[in-house]
Design a protein around this nucleic acid. Structure first.
Length: 499
RNA sequence: GGCCCGUUCGUCUAGUGGUUAGGACGCCAGGUUUUCAUCCUGGUAACAGGAGUUCGAUUCUCCUACGGGCUACCA
């Protein structure tokens, strides 16, 4: 690979559904590399399998990438609305719009006898494979149509017989490629069969389309999942057949992402799409951080990264080979770290949609739904949150007007109800002296601590319980601060009266 | 079955021809603390196995095992 070549990488998903976690990793790696090298990031849509198309999938893939903060310089993009657009000089960037281009290149190979039409029925192919399996042979095309005479081919085509085009793979020799992550990978050509490059519906297969496009779009580096390692020799053979080996991109395969039982991540095991994680309330930076660290390591002890830091520190040499297990515990921890670092304003903006879905929030009084109130709540929940879906969940007493609290829950160690009552009254008295304007966290804290003296639990515990109605909760200072003077005093009063 | 790839604590990983094999998550135990959470300290736990090379292998080579991928007119 010439190092003066402009870095151009592409993420090339098929629009068959939501963007998968594995897809996100591929997209992210492409993006990090492009940004690190000052190159271009291209989005190409590979929709040559007409049977698996899912309507709207392209939009959802772009949406997921946007959410994750992966930007596209060229190719298919979102115009901000419902539909997609394309930008760049190497378009179109949607493969179904490039049918004519592929046809031209396939014709060229056929002309040069490097490829040939194949009329074998799927039934025959299936039988052939069964037979091969039975004889413990490697299944593969037997070359049946390789030797068809020109007349036979012409007449079959004239009769409109359906056919595919196969690439002729030599029976001898080996194909070698130097993978940037896995190193030298050598395969004997005889284990490769004459693979299909053009399907009977006139669409190219992945192998052909991807090679033609990567060449025409001047792609410098191909980052893709390890599942493609085995077919890379086919692609190299194609580059050779076209005479494009000089400008062949570097191949860089990424280790697989596995689930707990070390199998390739699949839907059965729970969330696998980026949209799932978004809906579960993980901040995008957290998912990105987590995914970046699966199969890549900065060689330092840093664990928490912003996108900028990832771009800055990315390098291919730090990608490793073994597959990695997707560990939700670790994601949760990384997510908590990101949330802790967020500004309260940012946390508010991101978690509000989740809060608004909750019944306890919908049913709350209007003065508990204000931005001011929610931000105060978030200020104290920031330290306890792993994902946005948890917002308010453990502290619903903030939103409810009649909380119930009983004497047992307010009892500090083995004190008596009369002690509880006394301490609540004491708390009430000192808090009442704080004016509305002075109702600040520091003031509340210092006032209560002063009143408590060296017997903190005796005062603080019942006050906290009276304010929350819960056995566990944030501190009485924080709760009182969020709740406000009036409501706090009201709750303590109510608790006193209940004793 | 064939081909290709991989293998360090349960998980993510660092690392070296001679190290007490390091960090992080999780878990456990302590501490701080009014409870919860945060935070701090400590603990737990790994070089898949076998040969070979070597004075010495976790590190280099080979074999085996295990795991994964591919083996489609899917990508």
């Amino acid at each position: 690979m010439k190092n003066n070549k402009e870095v151009r990488v592409r993420f090339a998903p098929s629009p068959t559904g939501e963007l998968h976690i594995g897809g996100l990793r591929t997209a992210l790696t492409n993006f990090l590399f492009a940004r690190n090298k000052g190159g271009k990031m291209i989005l190409r849509i590979e929709d040559t399998d007409r049977n698996r198309l899912v309507e709207g999938a392209t939009d959802r893939i772009i949406e997921a990438m946007n959410w994750a903060g992966i930007e596209i310089d060229e190719g298919v993009c979102s115009d901000g609305g419902e539909s997609t657009c394309q930008k760049g000089e190497f378009g179109p960037y949607v493969q179904s719009e490039r049918k004519g281009i592929y046809q031209k290149y396939v014709d060229k190979l056929v002309e040069e006898k490097k490829a040939y039409p194949c009329f074998c029925s799927s039934e025959r192919l299936e039988e052939m494979r069964e037979e091969q399996m039975k004889n413990k042979q490697a299944p593969g095309y037997d070359g049946h149509c390789r030797e068809l005479s020109q007349e036979e081919v012409d007449s079959k085509i004239k009769n409109g017989e359906p056919h595919v085009v196969r690439f002729k793979v030599s029976d001898s020799g080996t194909t070698l490629h130097n993978d940037l992550v896995f190193g030298k990978i050598e395969v004997e050509n005889r284990v490769l069969d004459d693979f299909v490059i053009m399907k009977s519906d006139g669409f190219p297969t992945y192998h052909l389309a991807c090679v033609v496009d990567d060449h025409l779009m001047k792609i410098s580096h191909v980052f893709r999942g390890a599942e493609w390692i085995a077919s890379t020799p086919k692609h190299i053979l194609l580059y050779e057949a076209f005479g494009w080996t000089d400008e062949m991109p570097s191949f860089c395969h990424m280790p697989s992402i596995l689930n707990k039982n070390k199998k390739k991540l699949s839907k059965r095991e729970g969330s696998v799409s980026v949209a799932d994680f978004k809906n579960e309330g993980y901040p995008p930076e957290a998912l990105v951080n987590f995914i970046a660290l699966l199969g890549w390591n900065p060689k330092t002890e840093q664990e928490i990264f912003s996108m900028e830091e990832l771009i800055d520190q990315f390098s291919i040499e730090k990608i490793h080979r073994a597959g990695g297990v997707f560990d939700l515990d670790r994601l949760a921890w990384i997510s908590a770290q990101h949330i802790k670092k967020m500004s309260t304003e940012d946390l508010y903006v991101q978690s509000l949609p989740f809060l608004e879905k909750k019944e306890f929030f919908k049913n709350a009084a209007e003065n508990r739904k204000t931005k001011d109130f929610v931000k105060k709540l978030l200020e104290i929940e920031k330290e306890r949150m792993e994902k946005f879906t948890q917002v308010g969940e453990k502290n619903q007493f903030f939103f409810s007007d009649d909380i119930e609290v009983n004497a047992d829950d307010m009892r500090w160690k083995d004190s008596k109800d009369t002690d509880t009552k006394e301490n609540l009254q004491k708390g009430f008295d000192v808090l009442e002296k704080i004016g509305e304007d002075d109702w600040k966290l520091e003031n509340i804290e210092s006032t209560l601590l002063e009143a408590a003296g060296d017997k903190r639990g005796d005062l603080l515990f019942p006050v906290r319980a009276a304010l929350t109605g819960q056995k566990r909760s944030p501190s009485p200072f924080q709760v009182a601060w969020v709740l406000g003077r009036e409501e706090s005093l009201k709750r303590i009063k109510k608790a006193i009266d209940s004793l």
